[in-house]
Simulated assay, not measured.
Amino acid sequence: MKRLIISALVATIGIAAAPAVQAGELWRATGLEQPESALLDAPNNRIIVSNIVGNPGDADGNGYLSVLSLDGKIVTQHWTDGMDAPKGLAISGGKLYVADITKVRVVDLASGRLINSIVVPNAVFLNDMTSDQAGRVYVSDMLADTIYRIDGDRPELFVRDAMLASPNGVFADGGRLIVASWGKGIKPDFSTAEPGGLLAIDLASKVVSPLPGAQRFADLDGVVAIGGTIYATAYMTGTLYRYKAGGAPEAVAHFKPGSADIGTDGKSILYVPLMNDGEVAALKLD
């Protein structure tokens, strides 16, 4: 299953016409290599981007991190090398945590130096990351219906539940973890027998709850929350969705297939990695 899914992901690269500029688009950074995640490092006025550079499941040593300025210019193309297929990013305690297949890489945020590699036992395909208000870090395992928590560089099982249905995006939002599910029954073309949706996990009780009205609507990838609004990307179609409690998911922007783990300034801007285009787009929200 793992090889099937990875091969299908690679096969999606470059399958559609060039995208139009989105309404509200501020800039696009170009020249990246399969950018999967974009994370704002606000105190340092920069955006950190993970570059896969090859098969997303291969431990090939090709992956690296880049640094962008807040206006979308590449400041440092190869800021941190020595990774395999880096994906989700999270910041905690002066460190940057990076999901890298079955490991979580730890990078010194000040220097960009790789300082540790945390092996996550039984991990299959680590994907997105986030950190909560207490500084604990969470990472999704998309192919194991699992989310792990890292506290003090020690990994532990947080939740394993079939209800998570291939959890991809994760975002700590107060006392809950918002999860974007890819869906159930992943097929060779990476579509699903049942598309994913949005869920929430209570950080204290670990209870998993589907978000009302936001189930089985898309194969979701990245997710963030700004106030009471959740934004999520659908990798296969390139659609950006918006969801508010009591409503239904609404498509608010369309990119090429490959929109991945989005970041935000927490106010009005989204950073959207366009993995198949080698670009990151900054989108100003209404």
Rank of each mutant, 00 (worst) to 15 (best):
L4N: 14
I5K: 06
I6Q: 14
A11W: 04
A11L: 05
A11Q: 08
A16M: 06
P19I: 03
Q22Y: 12
G24V: 12
W27C: 04
R28V: 14
L32G: 07
Q34M: 05
P35T: 01
L40K: 09
A42Q: 13
P43V: 14
N45H: 12
I47F: 01
I47D: 03
I47P: 02
N51M: 02
N55G: 10
G57S: 00
D58S: 14
A59M: 09
N62W: 08
L65T: 09
S66Q: 05
S66H: 06
L68N: 10
S69D: 05
L70T: 05
K73D: 15
T76L: 15
H78Y: 13
W79H: 15
D81R: 14
D81W: 14
P86K: 11
P86Q: 07
G88L: 08
L89C: 02
L89F: 07
G93I: 09
G94L: 13
G94H: 12
Y97E: 14
D100R: 09
K103Q: 14
L109G: 04
N116S: 09
P121Q: 15
P121A: 15
V124H: 07
L126F: 03
N127T: 07
N127E: 10
D128W: 00
M129S: 04
Q133R: 15
A134T: 11
G135M: 00
G135F: 01
V139S: 05
S140R: 11
D141E: 03
M142V: 13
D145Y: 07
D145Q: 12
I147T: 01
Y148I: 03
I150L: 13
G152D: 01
R154N: 15
F158V: 09
L164G: 02
L164M: 05
A165G: 03
S166R: 05
P167I: 13
P167N: 14
V170C: 01
V170N: 00
A172T: 05
A172G: 10
A172P: 08
D173Y: 07
G174V: 10
G175T: 10
L177M: 08
A180P: 03
S181M: 07
G185H: 05
I186G: 08
K187V: 11
P188G: 03
T192Q: 07
G196V: 14
L198T: 01
S205W: 02
K206S: 11
V207T: 15
V207G: 12
V207R: 13
P210Y: 06
P212T: 05
P212C: 08
G213A: 09
A214D: 06
A218E: 14
D219E: 15
L220G: 09
L220R: 07
G222M: 07
V223G: 00
V224I: 08
I226F: 00
G228A: 08
I230P: 11
A232K: 03
Y235M: 15
T239Q: 15
L240A: 11
Y243M: 03
G247D: 01
G247A: 01
A248Y: 00
A248I: 04
K256G: 11
P257I: 09
G258H: 01
S259R: 06
S259T: 15
D265G: 02
S268W: 04
L270S: 06
P273N: 07
M275D: 10
N276D: 12
D277C: 10
A281C: 13
A282L: 02
K284R: 15
